[in-house]
């Protein structure tokens, strides 16, 4: 009996809940697999998909978003071995799973921790509450490929943003595989969109895009490129998360800043009277 011939996977983009090839028809070779080489047009399509998903996702209850993020952790746990097989160290996969769980719990707590009633000097009810800023364009760090990717996606979406993330060009397989996890986790299409390929091709388009509300430059190691992207982001005053320092400890408690930078605080006043 001859050995079974394995079915190989095609690594495609993840846009609007679907897995299209790059509209440019290009790919590049990573770990013996052809990975889509996203174009500027793919980046624009991803922004359109992300924008379309904002209303539903931001409008979902915090409880619902928390449930879905936890579901992502469940799905990821089930695929643990697959990520290990792709080269991710087991403890990194574990940390990535745990990070989803950590962020899942924030969905209905951050508004309490970060918002609240303000005791204004007058007969007014005054309440501040955080809201998602909208569409976030994020650059995942080169490494750790999976944990770093999860660490930029989860804080963006837990509060109701949608995200277009440029995966690490050198290690895109984890990103596409994570997209498969997301696609099977009840996450509405378009909430997370994953682009693979060259950062220099997609990210400037995202940073300059006038329908993007924030950029997370965490994974931009090139200081000059980061500055250039920040300049582009200034055109419509995108909220900016600057690149992470090279020695950033991805296993440490992430803190709130990654979430709060991508939030708007809305304060509502109302008189108190009869």
């Amino acid at each position: 009996m001859s050995e079974r011939v394995a079915v190989r996977k095609t690594y495609k983009l993840f846009i609007g809940g679907k897995f299209p090839r790059s509209e440019s028809g290009r790919s590049y070779l990573v770990q013996d697999s052809n990975v889509s080489l996203a174009s500027r047009k793919d980046a624009r399509d991803a922004v359109v998909a992300a924008r379309a998903a904002v209303k539903g996702w931001a409008g979902a209850t915090a409880y619902n978003r928390g449930q879905i993020l936890y579901r992502v952790a469940e799905m990821l746990e089930g695929r643990r071995d697959q990520f290990v097989a792709l080269g991710a160290p087991a403890d990194e996969v574990d940390a990535a799973i745990d990070r989803w769980v950590w962020y899942a719990g924030w969905s209905d707590k951050l508004p309490q921790v970060y918002g609240g009633a303000n005791p204004v000097a007058g007969p007014y009810f005054n309440l501040s509450a955080p809201e998602p800023t909208g569409v976030v364009a994020a650059v995942a760090p080169e490494a750790p490929a999976l944990l770093g990717l999860v660490s930029v996606i989860a804080p963006a979406i837990v509060t109701g943003n949608t995200v277009v993330v440029a995966a690490s060009p050198a290690a895109p397989l984890a990103a596409v595989t994570l997209a498969e996890v997301l696609a099977t986790s009840d996450l509405p299409g378009g909430v997370v969109n994953v682009l693979t390929g060259r950062l220099a091709e997609t990210v400037p388009t995202l940073a300059a895009h006038m329908d993007v509300n924030a950029v997370d430059l965490t994974g931009v190691a090139d200081a000059e490129l980061a500055a250039e992207l920040e300049v582009k982001a200034a055109e419509n005053l995108k909220r900016v998360l600057r690149p992470a320092p090279a020695d950033h400890d991805w296993y440490a408690d992430p803190g709130l800043t990654r979430m709060t930078t991508l939030l708007e605080t809305k304060t509502v006043w109302h008189p108190k009277g009869v």
Partner: peptide
């Protein structure tokens, strides 16, 4: 009851 309401704080 169809007359516009009066907001107490604003009127005061």
């Amino acid at each position: 009851h169809g007359l516009p309401g009066v907001d107490q704080v604003g009127a005061e």
